[in-house]
Nucleic acid binder design. Structure first.
Lengths: 155, 155
DNA sequence: GAATCTCCGACCCTTTAAGTCGTATACTGA
DNA sequence: TCAGTATACGACTTAAAGGGTCGGAGATTC
């Protein structure tokens, strides 16, 4: 139904939380999970995945935890979603290299592939910093035209 | 994983097929299903739903079937998807009127809601005619800049 | 060496999508 | 009016994926 998974949601929330607490050298999975009321073990697995893909750095032991490996403005929402949910395909068709398994004559996938690219483009244009900076967010939304992303779809 | 359901895919394919055969007064669910190799009974149910929402007109009996209720250029991909899959929400959060059931402090949903609107905008800008008109599609893609949709995302 | 923490794989449960079946109903044409 | 063809609709079954849990192994600090 064109929905992000909860895991991806959790991942974004966790990174946002980390971005909001740059003073701490590291935050444990439990800390973050408690802050949002999400299952700690599940979040841990998500953070481990983000660590493997290089978005986070982890530190075991007491006072250990996770920290952003880059500045929040250098991490896009797309990277997070891709790391957690894998490649982003809007259709069941376009899986990897070539087209439909179902119908070779499925001409519908081409325009939808462009929609897909558009969505990816939008998600790439959003950084964790954008998510965390609520005030700036509201301010910009109020003052008007500082469009962050301008996406074109060439049909 | 941000994927359209197969039902929505099927629906779009069927409408495209109808748009490509304006000479026939009506095509049966079986005709269309055979053309694409998809389960006839399943497609029938999808077409019935599209009929209920007014995108198609049906006619029972011999030589009966389905026909577009409007011109293909007046039916957007969004309408089809909405009719089949229901309202389009990118997050598990934004369900209907108000926010998260999980965490009241989930501030992430606001920027994502804008992403959601962007996607909806893109889908609304695509008509069934756009899907059906493959030649024009290719030609436009080759010649360059006749951008059909220009979507802005104000973060 | 005890308390915290990450790490990782196996497992279970629930939901949803996908597809099937059966039957009632409507229309057409001979 | 009867047979054939089609839609209409709901209940049911099956398959897959998401969401979440459990248990143990390996770091790290105090």
């Amino acid at each position: 139904m064109l929905k992000l998974t909860k895991k991806a949601d959790y991942g974004l929330m966790a990174l946002k939380y980390l971005a909001e607490h740059p003073e701490s050298p590291a935050l444990s999975a439990k800390d973050i999970a408690d802050a949002y009321g999400i299952p700690a073990q599940l979040l841990a697995k998500i953070l481990q995945r983000l660590t493997k893909t290089g978005l986070l750095r982890s530190h075991a032991g007491m006072n250990g935890g996770y920290a952003l490996s880059r500045d929040a403005s250098q991490i896009s929402a797309f990277e997070v979603i891709h790391a957690i949910d894998g490649p982003l395909f809007i259709t069941s068709c376009t899986k990897g290299a070539h087209g439909c398994d179902l119908t070779p004559s499925c001409t519908i996938k081409e325009p939808l592939a462009r929609v897909n690219e558009t969505i990816v483009g939008v998600l790439k244009s959003i950084s964790i910093h954008d998510l965390a900076d609520q005030e700036g967010f509201a301010a910009r939304a109020a003052t008007g035209p500082p469009a962050k992303a301008l996406v074109t779809l060439n049909l």
